[in-house]
Amino acid sequence: MKPASFEYHAPDSVEEALGLLTEHGWDAKALAGGQSLIPAMNFRLARPAVLVDLNLIDELAFIRRNENGGGDGGPGPGGVRIGAMTRQRAVEKSELVAELAPLLTEMMPHIAHPQIRNRGTFGGSAVHADPASEIPAALLALDASCRVRGVEGERWVRAEEFFLGLFGTSLEPDELLIEIALPGPRELTGCAFREISRRQGDYALAGLAIRLTLDVKGRIQEARLAYLGVGGAPALAASAAAVLIGEKPTATVVEDAARTAAGELEPMEDMHASAAYRSRLVEILTREALATAAERASGSG
């Protein structure tokens, strides 16, 4: 349980970090909160030759109102921007986040334990792209955008293009995630988060983050359902969304969408849950989350 030897750098600016990542390419790994990378290194499942520790880069830790007018090519104005090295605990406790992205406030306590959230970062979890973790699902449901920078320049990537399968993102080895922008609350829109786990703080057996927008007649205009712990990648459930669009969120419609989601996703099987069990959990959680989101969207919840 000791890591293989590695070269260690602790730059204090993004520029210096990008220089190191460019220099070492695939041999280098950026270290954020270390809550996944360090255990993997101790098991020698990860053996980066070079570790670029981002913890001294203060400019990457912030939570602020998005006042961007679109000048940098990013979304906005409106919503909240969270720096990649912001601790998960800071996001959980932020009043700004509670105001502008309450889904995150609801979801954060489900990530492991307070000790882990004190150290783990918001961006680190996004870049790790573990299909069992909460943050990628929330970013998908909220239609977040990721600001990514390399030595050559920077780009904004929408969550759906950022996550590319199991532990995969569109980040190049010489790029860093700088910040994540989350759109603010909208009219007739409700969000909900649900997961079920064996013990408090465990990876969920199944879970989802959802954002539902109604039209003025109470029909569902947009539905973004993003699951965790179910499939091989952080992804949206398109068929379940299709069932919902244009319908009022009645019990029947909700049931139908929940069943569609259970059928559409292909849950993995492991020692903690069979595929059939996961499918049933998907159905139950989808039903519950949809009902909650619909109540919130219509202002009754």
Partner: peptide
Amino acid sequence: LSPNRLFALIE
């Protein structure tokens, strides 16, 4: 026993 096993038993 586990929730997974119990689910199978219930089914």
